[in-house]
Amino acid sequence: MAKKPKEMAMDTALARRLDIEDEPLTNEEQRKLCFDMFNKFWEDAASRGIEFDVVGTMSISAALFALVRKHGQDTSAEFVDDLAKSIRNGEFNFQDRKN
Rank of each mutant, 00 (worst) to 15 (best):
Ala77Tyr: 07
Ala15Leu: 12
Thr12Gly: 07
Gln73Glu: 09
Gly49His: 06
Leu64Gly: 01
Phe92Arg: 00
Glu91Phe: 02
Leu67Ile: 05
Met8Pro: 00
Phe79Leu: 12
Lys6Ser: 14
Ala13Thr: 08
Val80Gln: 00
Met1Tyr: 00
Met37His: 03
Phe41Cys: 08
Lys85Ser: 09
Gln95Met: 07
Ser76Met: 08
Ser47Asn: 10
Ala15Cys: 07
Lys40Arg: 15
Asn93Ala: 06
Val68Ala: 06
Asn99Glu: 15
Glu28Gly: 05
Ile87His: 02
Pro24Tyr: 06
Glu7Leu: 10
Lys85His: 07
Ile60His: 01
Thr57Phe: 10
Lys40Gly: 06
Asp19Ala: 15
Phe38Pro: 00
Lys70Asp: 15
Phe38Met: 15
Leu83Ser: 04
Asp44Val: 15
Glu78Arg: 02
Ala77Asp: 01
Glu91Asn: 11
Phe52Tyr: 10
Met10Thr: 09
Asp22Gln: 11
Lys32Ala: 13
Arg69Met: 05
Asp19Ser: 14
Gly72Gln: 04
Arg69Cys: 04
Glu78Leu: 14
Ala63Asp: 04
Gly49Gln: 06
Val55Asn: 07
Ala9Arg: 15
Ile60Leu: 14
Lys40Val: 14
Leu33Gly: 01
Met10Gln: 13
Lys4Pro: 01
Ala84Leu: 10
Lys3Cys: 03
Arg16Pro: 02
Ala62Cys: 04
Ile87Asp: 02
Gln30Ala: 08
Ala45Ile: 05
Arg16Cys: 12
Met1Trp: 00
Lys32Thr: 14
Ala2Ile: 08
Arg88Val: 10
Glu43Lys: 15
Ala63Trp: 08
Lys70Ile: 06
Phe35Asp: 13
Gln73Arg: 02
Glu43Met: 13
Ala13Trp: 08
Asp22Ser: 13
Glu43Ile: 14
Phe94Ala: 13
Ala62Gly: 13
Ser47Leu: 12
Met1Phe: 00
Phe35Cys: 10
Ser47Gly: 09
Asp22His: 08
Thr57Arg: 12
Asp81Glu: 15
Ser86Phe: 01
Leu64Arg: 03
Met1Asp: 00
Val54Cys: 09
Lys6His: 12
Leu33Cys: 04
Thr26Val: 01
Ile60Gly: 08
Glu51Cys: 06
Gly72Asn: 03
Val54Tyr: 14
Ala63Tyr: 05
Glu29Ile: 05
Lys4Thr: 11
Phe52Arg: 15
Arg97Ser: 11
Ala84Cys: 07
Leu14Phe: 06
